[in-house]
């Protein structure tokens, strides 16, 4: 049973750390307060449920950043429109990188989500074309599934651009 106790303590600790990381950007003092309380309760009954609660608290206290969700939706929409109206070229990579960079700069904490979302747009649009047969007028050929999957290669540059945007945000904000 000693092993189970150690495992639950370790798990509670990991969950507490995750909760604190989530909360840290907006409420650093409260993130530290939750961690301190967690450390104090290591041997108390219910320390694991306390840790889960802390994670819920971190979500509740930072929930729904509508401005970011709006920016992400606008970025995905812009990329979708671009992809629908233009054929793939080097400019597509540039568009992915520029939008990824802007989103990374706008919301540094969510740079990974921004990069993946923007980078996956081209593959998603092509998958839509393949599955539904609805295609833009200029498109003369059908994409195969392998070709659709190949377009997910745009995800890494988008994540990279978003990470650069994140770095830029911190540089600009000192």
């Amino acid at each position: 049973m000693k092993g189970a106790g150690a495992l639950s303590t370790w798990l509670a600790d990991q969950i507490g750390q995750l909760a604190a990381r989530r909360l840290h950007e907006r409420h650093p003092e409260w993130a530290a307060a939750m961690l301190a309380e967690q450390a104090e309760l290591q041997t108390a009954p219910g320390h694991l449920s306390w840790a889960f609660g802390a994670l819920v608290a971190s979500v509740r206290a930072t929930e729904c950043d509508l401005s970011y969700l709006g920016a992400l939706a606008a970025g995905v929409l812009a990329m979708t429109v671009y992809q629908w109206t233009m054929d793939e070229s080097l400019l597509t990579v540039a568009a992915v990188c520029v939008i990824g960079l802007c989103l990374g700069c706008f919301k540094p904490r969510s740079y990974l989500l921004s990069g993946v979302a923007i980078g996956a747009v081209v593959a998603a649009v092509n998958a839509f074309e393949t599955l539904t047969g609805i295609r833009p007028t200029y498109e003369a050929y059908h994409h195969s599934l392998a070709r659709v999957l190949a377009f997910s290669i745009l995800v890494p540059p988008a994540v990279f651009a978003s990470a650069v945007g994140r770095r830029l945000h911190f540089l600009l904000s000192g």
Binding site: W30, E37, E40, G53, L55, V56, A57, R60, A61
Partner: peptide, 22 residues
């Protein structure tokens, strides 16, 4: 008062307690 004491006395989980405290 500590967070844990308050949660016990008020009958709240930590997930409810901290957003209210904040």
């Amino acid at each position: 008062r500590h967070g844990y004491d308050l949660a016990k006395e008020a009958g709240l989980s930590s997930g409810t307690l901290y957003p209210i405290l904040i």
